[in-house]
């Protein structure tokens, strides 16, 4: 009887731990609200800006190199 009780408890604990696993908190509502796209656009704009600056620097160095030749 004691063994069965332990077994039952173990099974219950296992189920409970699994149930906990399913309820992992993720940003679901955050995405559902649709505003995540605003953040993504902001990131895209910043990245474009930085890359444009990098291209500008690259060309500037090229000009200097051409002058020195």
């Amino acid at each position: 009887m004691k063994k069965i009780k332990i077994l039952l408890f173990a099974m219950l604990a296992y189920v409970a731990s699994n149930a906990q696993g399913e309820a992992v908190e993720m940003a679901n509502t955050f995405r559902q609200s649709g505003k995540i796209y605003v953040v993504i656009t902001v990131i895209a704009i910043i990245f474009t800006g930085i890359i444009s600056y990098l291209i500008y620097i690259d060309r500037k160095i090229s000009n200097l190199e051409n002058k020195q030749k």
Binding site: V24, I36, I40, I43
Partner: peptide, 12 residues
């Protein structure tokens, strides 16, 4: 940078 925020990821 963009898809990294949208893709499905494992829930851990």
């Amino acid at each position: 940078l963009t898809f990294g925020l949208l893709s499905k990821v494992p829930t851990l």
